[in-house]
Amino acid sequence: MAEVLDGLLTFYSWHHALRAEKVLREGGFRVELIPAPRELSSNCGTALRLEHGRLDEALELLAARRVQVEAGHRFLPAAEAREPGPVGAGKPRRRWLVGA
């Protein structure tokens, strides 16, 4: 089964985002740089997607290499995110779980 990149890391600085990409890729992680979702971070404009199941492992490696991470998040598939809310009530919404 293909890995699903349902985890996301946000950073304070683009330096750390790009360094995290490199460190994790060298460590055998599948990662993808994306523009940071605005609702998650106003810090650095770049975020890194990875498998949520390997988030702790990734954080450990990054800490060992002194790469600063702002927060880790989990991407909730559309079906699970269907919920009533003040915005777009009743519509299926894909959303990131902050700090998951």
């Binding site: 600085s13 683009w14 330096h15 790009l18 360094r19 490199k22 740089l33 523009p35 940071a36 404009g45």
Partner: peptide, 22 residues
Amino acid sequence: NPGRSGHQMAVTAGRLVLEARE
């Protein structure tokens, strides 16, 4: 421009600066 946008050209420049630092 490194770090100023999320598009691939900004990221390419950012990676270059990161490599210089490393």
